[in-house]
Computed example of a mutant assay.
Amino acid sequence: MRIAIDAMGGDHAPSLIVQGALEAALEWPAVHLILVGDKARIETHLGSKRPSNIEILHAEDVIGPDDEPVKAVRRKKNSSMVMAGQLVREGKAEAMLSAGNTGALMTTGLLVVGRMEGIERPALVTMLPTMDDKGVLALDLGANMDAKPEHLLQYAIMGSIYRSKMNGMDKPRVGLLNVGTEAMKGNELTKAAYELLETAPIHFIGNVEARDVLVRNCDVLICDGFAGNIMLKAMEGTAGTLFKTMRDVFTSSLLSKLAAAIVQPKLRALRNKMDYKEHGGAPLLGVNGLVVKCHGSSDVKAVKNAVRQAKLAIESNLISSIAAEISRK
């Protein structure tokens, strides 16, 4: 099993990316990691005790956070991100991870790795935390701002297979994000998508509302990238504001500090539940290989969990299962 890692992408590259890869290599010796990027800088952070299951592929260039995605991917052929994508395309790696420029990674998935036959628009997938710790798989959360009903149908099929393969769910419940639960609610896109999802080979439960997502009103949440990204950012902002408010309250007086000491373990557990680092990364489903987008500020823990996530997806034959199902449509 070979996984390529864009060692130069992200806010903390290459130091924390390399350290996360190092921890993953030590945890799973059967996983061969290819660190793509500036060889001298990577070696500095690896140190002298490099495991035998880590290799370095030198890349001269880097796609920065402010680079225009399509131009960057086409012009920077020797960048760490593009070269990692080429490894997947050529079958020299089963997966690639990057915490770099999101738009550029989407473009790398489409132009370098290649789109899966039968898929019009790949989708960015994220596991949203829920109170029962089982999560809700949401797609698309930003890969495509505009979508057609057929795209939402493809998202639903891919998402359902993901939960079956990755989470062992027999009949994952698929819900369509909408402004109400009634069948005729929503705009033209959701109304048309509803009709397609009703006859799809999935366990479709109808429309669901965003306010109930955190209590897991479905297992797979389907939406266009525009609405999905707004929902995700609203959740992130709400969680951040809530924890800041709680911190202010618990540090406002001696009595509240004493109370904080008592409930601190529970609060820490709640914060971890909402932490992106626990979930690794967001796969781009619908391309001919496993492409995982890590959070831009990924640390050692997040990188290690992303490797774990990619490992499980490879072992579960996720990509080939999606390709086989889509080819039958």
Rank of each mutant, 00 (worst) to 15 (best):
E315I: 03
I161H: 05
T102P: 01
D61Q: 15
N272E: 15
D146W: 03
V220N: 01
V292C: 11
K71Q: 13
C223M: 12
A261R: 12
A84T: 04
A59V: 03
A143V: 02
D140L: 05
P122S: 08
A193T: 12
N144G: 04
L270M: 15
V136G: 10
N229Q: 02
L111K: 02
L105D: 05
I205D: 07
R41F: 01
L22H: 00
L87S: 09
P51R: 07
T251E: 12
A324D: 14
E150T: 05
A306H: 09
L137H: 05
V113N: 03
A7H: 01
V307M: 11
V125W: 02
V18R: 08
A21D: 03
L110C: 02
H45M: 08
L284E: 00
S48L: 14
A227L: 14
D299N: 15
R173Y: 03
A104F: 10
L232C: 10
L110S: 03
S298V: 06
A21N: 10
L232T: 08
R211D: 05
D66M: 05
S164N: 14
E278K: 12
L284I: 11
I42H: 01
V88M: 12
V292T: 08
S15F: 07
G10R: 07
M127P: 00
G281P: 02
C218P: 01
V113R: 09
M8E: 02
S52R: 15
G286D: 06
L33S: 03
L97D: 02
A93T: 06
N272V: 11
R308H: 09
S297R: 13
K277E: 15
A261Y: 12
A313F: 06
S52G: 10
S321M: 10
N101C: 07
G225H: 03
K304Q: 13
M106Q: 04
H295T: 07
N317M: 02
V291L: 11
T44L: 14
K244E: 15
E43M: 13
G296L: 11
E236W: 10
H58W: 11
D67V: 06
Q309P: 04
A269V: 08
I34W: 05
A123M: 03
L312Q: 14
E209H: 04
L16I: 03
D11K: 08
T241C: 12
S321V: 09
V136P: 07
E182V: 01
D248A: 13
A95V: 01
I205L: 11
A234C: 09
E182G: 04
N167P: 00
P69Q: 12
L285T: 01
G206N: 07
S316Y: 06
S52C: 08
T241W: 05
K185W: 08
E94S: 14
I322C: 07
D66F: 09
L110V: 14
D224A: 03
S80E: 10
K304W: 00
P29R: 11
L267I: 09
A104E: 00
S316W: 00
G281R: 11
E68W: 07
K92T: 00
G118N: 00
A93L: 07
G296K: 12
A13Y: 01
M81G: 04
G281Q: 08
Q309W: 00
